[in-house]
Design a protein around this nucleic acid. Structure first.
Length: 601
RNA sequence: GCCCCCGUAGCUCACCUGGAUAGAGCAUCGGUUUCCUAAACCGAGGGUAGCAGGUUCGAGUCCUGCCGGGGGUACCA
């Protein structure tokens, strides 16, 4: 990972100052804790109030170690560092405030270096080669076939899509997997429903909404007539045994659904590297069961084949039902093992809702037990590399969205509504725009996507039409609008953008905020990867866009807008370098979220 | 019953591995356009961070208990 030079310099200056100011302690301790620049680097903070400085180091924890009160330490070290500040060309001042040591960077230097780096590396800015080609699997979206694509699928789909992009940016070889729910008792239900109420139509002529109706009807009728459930189980059993007629029906359900999914993915710009499904694992389950049996982990309970997890809070993991049919967990275990053997991944992420948290705990526990029993060497174990990236529910009003009850908002409707609204806005604000339809699509989709990133992933998110369709404030369109405005500036600028500019001309407080946010973008990308949450990037972009808009509308002493492009060629050149840098980062950040940015809107 | 997640401004949410005066957006009220896109910007009001303890120099953040909401709890996925 590339380190921030200014941050590093401050850490070095502090470590040296600590060594000098507390020479006796340093002598006995050596290069550790506060005497170690690397330690300080990792423990630097950002001051709450930007006026306090660029970086901060709290010394409270070291009061005991150094035998002095925090403010004394801070002052003494800050004074010591100040004496030799001239040997650090990136630092302007080191001061103390209470128990904090604060640093101000040489702003012109930081502005110059940051902007030059962005102008030079362009879209590569914020990335790294940290992944070094190691493999990361991300499983996301994974809709069930024979069901429409509802708003409930939105989160996993775009979260996973974004994580795929983020890890790619960090140099990992990412495989985005769409693991279709194309197997299980639910297909028994569909088959029964189709035969009973399908009216003899051909599946190929049907639409997913027809299938949904049947699915809902099944659940309604099954409440009255319990034997339907047995019938469905039997139908699934036949499917699993390969009964030709049943298999044919299933294949048709699959095709009908796939067509709908592809349409939605195209609309949203979602990409996968591998589309597979539960059915793919059909012949891979038996070997896994054999392996578990051989390891002595299985037992029969109430007629079912289980793995007892020896955990009071986890029910046993079911491998086979009493009727011999397999279950979700069986297939996931087979999938875990298959993918581990095939890819030897660094990490494998399952972007699945929080409701399935226990399921993943069970599956991972089984893998752990198996690796223990088989005495797999530590560096050949997949346990610890597989992670459940869970996220909260999408809620609609007071209701949970449930496909079983037919209580569903179609994702396509949401997108269409947002795009229509974007089209209206364009007609109102920029009726002469050339690519109106294309732009409206980008904005509408941007609004829908962003609405999911504005909340930390663990939290439930309330689906609110007004919010999703809002284009003002902390929204996707706000970021897109800022980007379009930046593009407009670049169009209006009469010369070429150049990395040769007078950095000392970027001396306004508003500009400093922007530069700092630009410099911190790589850290935000890292942060998003570490927490598996693109929300970090979304929030960073909002701050950046806001900071830039304040530069853009900054007024001079006379109350007039201080324009980016003016008669002063040198000043304009410096400011336009800032503009191009912000544009690059917003564009790149949005692309990590899977959001496109039009040049005009 | 047990397990997991959540509880911050009227609403929706932030606060990075505990740190300085708890910040944004929406909504409300007021202001900014002879000026590069006003989908923007500035200002005002709005807070017992569910409650009660504990750990710590320091707690929205960690621990315990309680209250409230949601989810899960073997033959659905």
């Amino acid at each position: 990972m590339t380190k921030n030079r200014f941050r590093e310099e401050f850490a070095r200056a502090l470590a040296t100052a600590f060594q000098q100011a507390y020479a006796d302690k340093f002598e006995s301790m050596g290069v550790k804790e506060v005497f170690d620049a690397e330690f300080i680097y990792d423990n630097l903070e950002k001051p709450k109030d930007a006026r306090m400085g660029r970086f901060a180091f709290p010394v409270f924890r070291f009061s005991k170690l150094l035998g002095a009160k925090p403010p004394e330490i801070a002052q003494r070290v800050a004074d010591t560092a100040s004496e030799s500040i001239s040997s650090y060309d990136g630092l302007a001042a080191v001061t103390s405030a209470g128990g904090f040591i604060n640093a101000a960077t040489d702003f012109a230097a930081e502005a110059g270096e940051t902007l030059c780096e962005i102008l030079k590396s362009k879209s590569a800015y914020g990335g790294s080669d940290r992944g070094n080609g190691r493999t990361v699997l991300v499983e996301y979206s994974s809709p069930n076939i024979a069901k429409p694509f509802g708003i409930g699928h939105l989160r996993t789909t775009i979260l996973g899509n974004s994580l795929r992009r983020i890890f790619k940016k960090l140099g990992f070889d990412v495989i985005g997997v769409n693991y279709l729910g194309d197997w299980g008792t639910q297909f028994g239900k569909m088959i029964v429903a189709w035969r009973r109420w399908g009216g003899g139509a051909r599946v190929a002529d049907s639409h997913v909404t027809d299938l949904l109706e049947l699915y809902v009807r099944f659940h309604e009728e099954a409440e009255k007539e319990d034997s339907l459930n047995d019938e469905a189980r039997l139908a699934f059993k036949k499917l699993e045994e390969g009964d030709p007629e049943t298999v044919k029906l299933w294949e048709q359900f699959r095709e009908t659904s796939q067509a709908e999914f592809d349409r939605v993915y195209k609309l949203l710009g979602i990409e996968f590297d591998l589309v597979t499904g539960e059915a793919f694992l059909n012949d891979k389950m038996e070997p896994v069961i054999k392996r578990l049996e051989k390891a002595g982990l299985t037992s029969i309970s109430e007629g079912a084949l289980i793995v007892d997890l020896d955990d009071p809070h986890l029910p046993p993991c079911l491998l086979k039902k009493a009727d011999g049919a397999t279950l979700y967990a069986t297939r996931d275990l087979a999938g875990l093992i298959y993918r581990w053997e095939k890819y030897k991944f660094e990490q494998s992420l399952y972007v699945v809702g929080t409701a399935q948290s226990d399921h993943f705990k069970q599956a991972f526990k089984v893998i752990g037990l198996l690796e223990d029993k088989e005495q797999v060497p530590p560096d050949e174990r997949m346990i610890g590399r597989v992670k459940h990236i869970e996220f909260g529910w999408v809620r609609f009003g007071d209701q949970m969205l449930s496909t079983r009850r037919g209580n569903i908002i179609f994702l396509e409707d949401v997108i269409n509504k947002a795009v229509d609204l974007a089209r209206e806005k364009i007609a109102e604000k920029n009726p002469d725009l050339a690519d109106r339809d294309e732009t409206a699509l980008m904005i509408g989709v941007g609004a829908v996507l962003y609405s999911q990133f504005s909340v930390r992933r663990q939290k439930d998110v309330n689906f609110d039409w007004d919010e999703v369709l809002s284009f003002e404030g902390e929204t996707g369109p706000y970021l897109q609008y800022t980007h379009a405005r930046l593009c407009s500036l670049l169009r209006n600028y009469p010369a070429e953008v150049s990395a040769e500019f007078d950095q000392s001309l970027l001396d306004k407080e508003e500009e400093r905020r922007v530069v700092e946010l630009l410099a911190d973008f790589p850290a935000a990308v890292e942060d998003a990867a570490r927490s598996y949450d693109p929300n970090v990037i979304a929030a960073h972009l909002i701050r950046l866009a806001g900071a830039f808009n304040r530069v853009y509308q900054r007024k001079d002493d006379k109350g007039r807008i201080d324009k980016i492009i003016s008669d002063d060629a040198n000043l304009s050149a410096a400011r336009i370098a800032l503009v191009e840098s912000v544009r690059t980062v917003i564009y790149e950040g949005l692309s990590l979220l899977g959001i496109q940015a039009p040049q005009e809107m």
